[in-house]
Write a protein that binds this DNA or RNA. Structure first.
Lengths: 214, 214
DNA sequence: GCCCTCTTGTGAAACAGTTCACAAACTCTC
DNA sequence: GAGAGTTTGTGAACTGTTTCACAAGAGGGC
């Protein structure tokens, strides 16, 4: 497979996986694209098209076998393994992310937390000691960190991202409200909370002039 | 103006506004679409097209007057006023969002915090008392809450959303990992952190097969 | 005042993503 | 085992978004 997959497709696969978890928990043996579509608020053609990029997993007339499709999606998304995640920024947002159950449940394990505040460095979070961001390079290598989460103030974010890239991290989730430069080959995603609220503000200010998000 | 504006356009306007803040702070009198494009990682044609939906603000040969364009974007996005926001969920994520400076700076003021945990109800956050979610309807009306942020566990989220809608809130930002149903006319946006990490997982698992997000 | 340079604003073209629509394939019933 | 009823997988059509390309306008120099 060398076809490029759209971001929107990947996000929907992630949704479908969550729905399949539920179907499997409830003992449902098969689901149709129509079932998944209804749950996800998309069309059934969309579901079939999304899945068709990766193979043909269904049986005509019957639908998709829940357990098998769930396992396939897990593999496709790369969730059939653990991911070692480094969190930079031990502020309130960092703490919230660290504690977030949903990450661990999907195999994302935070194995290092960094900050530059002497008051925070050395404190222990669930058996994990907060390290000095100055040691990021060494510790990322030692603990084989593969993904980075940047939860620092805006002005520190680019330096942190550079450090992560330097240390070999090829995937970064950025919460700092600043555009980060990363080299080709490094995947960067932004979560910008202010942008989200501003989009709500726009929608309330211009009723009927916004194309619905989903 | 009755043309429908794409979500991607709105998100970029929000970025441009941030850049214009910086230009204004540094005393730059005008910027070209090329300048803004470089900062935002988009093309200059994109910038001009985005702005052109709302009028023509630039001068050929010169570019856009920074102060004026900033003010126009502020108005367009509905940020030339305060927004009264209710936060539901006083857990770690709720606390992080409550303290987040970026919201207040843009005029988003959290005027009510709700939870259903008796240990949290009654505690005081920066002079604001955490209220019982059972009183959501009354308090939302009293304090004229216009936007809701849902930062509850997944299983409580739909009920909370229903309550917010019932109380007249027409814009909801949802952090719970669950698809919410809201009636037409209510704007809903999702921030799903697990989806973001799973997209990184996919990108690392299938190098070169992802279309870059920006 | 005229030319040269710069940059906007915008139709048209290109591209990307979604939906349609239907043949093919499977199950179930009788 | 034949017919009825489902549901997939997928080209083709469609819709929406981005990029191209260029005429029109503005400023600056001489």
């Amino acid at each position: 497979m060398t076809e490029k997959i759209a971001d929107s497709t990947i996000r929907r696969l992630s949704l479908y996986l969550r729905f399949l978890d539920e179907y499997e928990a409830s003992g449902t043996p098969t689901v149709s694209s129509e079932d998944l579509a209804a749950k996800g608020g998309v069309t059934s053609a969309q579901v079939r098209k999304d899945l068709s990029h990766f193979g043909s997993f269904g049986k005509r007339g019957l639908g998709y076998p829940v357990a098998e499709l769930r396992a396939r999606l897990e593999t496709i998304l790369g969730l059939d393994r653990r991911w070692r995640v480094g969190l930079v920024g031990a502020g309130r947002l960092g703490a919230a992310l660290f504690q977030y159950e949903g990450f661990r449940r999907r195999g994302f394990e935070i194995v290092a937390v960094f900050d530059d505040d002497p008051d925070k460095i050395g404190t222990v979070w669930d058996e994990l000691t907060v390290d000095d961001v100055a040691d990021l390079d060494r510790i990322v290598a030692e603990r084989e960190v593969e993904m980075g989460i940047v939860a620092t103030p805006a002005d520190a974010a680019q330096g942190v991202a550079d450090g992560l890239v330097e240390a070999g991290v090829a995937a970064i989730l950025n919460f700092a409200p600043r555009r980060l430069e990363v080299p080709d080959g490094v995947t960067l995603r932004d979560v910008n909370l202010v942008v989200e609220l501003e989009a709500l503000s726009f929608a309330l200010t211009h009723p009927g002039e916004v194309v619905p998000v989903r």
